[in-house]
Computed example of a mutant assay.
Amino acid sequence: MAFSAPAADTRVKDVSIGENELSVRLMDGRTISVPLGWYPRLAGATPDQRKHWEIAGGGYGIHWPEIDEDLSTDGLLRGAPAPRRG
Score class of each variant (00 low, 15 high):
1 M>G: 15
2 A>L: 12
3 F>E: 12
3 F>Q: 06
3 F>N: 12
5 A>L: 15
5 A>F: 10
5 A>P: 00
10 T>Y: 06
11 R>W: 01
11 R>G: 04
11 R>M: 01
12 V>K: 03
13 K>E: 00
15 V>L: 00
16 S>Q: 15
17 I>C: 07
18 G>K: 08
20 N>H: 12
22 L>W: 11
22 L>S: 06
22 L>M: 06
23 S>R: 03
24 V>W: 04
24 V>T: 01
24 V>K: 05
25 R>S: 02
25 R>E: 11
26 L>R: 06
33 S>A: 10
34 V>Q: 04
34 V>K: 15
34 V>D: 04
35 P>H: 13
36 L>A: 03
37 G>F: 05
38 W>V: 03
38 W>Q: 02
41 R>L: 15
42 L>R: 01
43 A>W: 07
43 A>R: 15
43 A>F: 07
45 A>D: 12
49 Q>E: 13
49 Q>Y: 10
50 R>H: 09
51 K>V: 02
52 H>C: 11
55 I>Q: 15
57 G>V: 01
60 Y>S: 02
62 I>Y: 00
62 I>H: 02
63 H>F: 12
63 H>S: 10
65 P>Y: 13
66 E>D: 14
66 E>M: 10
67 I>T: 14
68 D>I: 05
69 E>W: 03
70 D>P: 01
70 D>L: 10
71 L>G: 03
71 L>Y: 01
72 S>Y: 05
72 S>A: 04
72 S>N: 08
74 D>G: 08
74 D>K: 10
75 G>K: 02
75 G>Q: 08
78 R>K: 12
78 R>E: 11
81 P>T: 05
83 P>A: 03
83 P>R: 03
84 R>G: 00
84 R>D: 03
85 R>T: 08
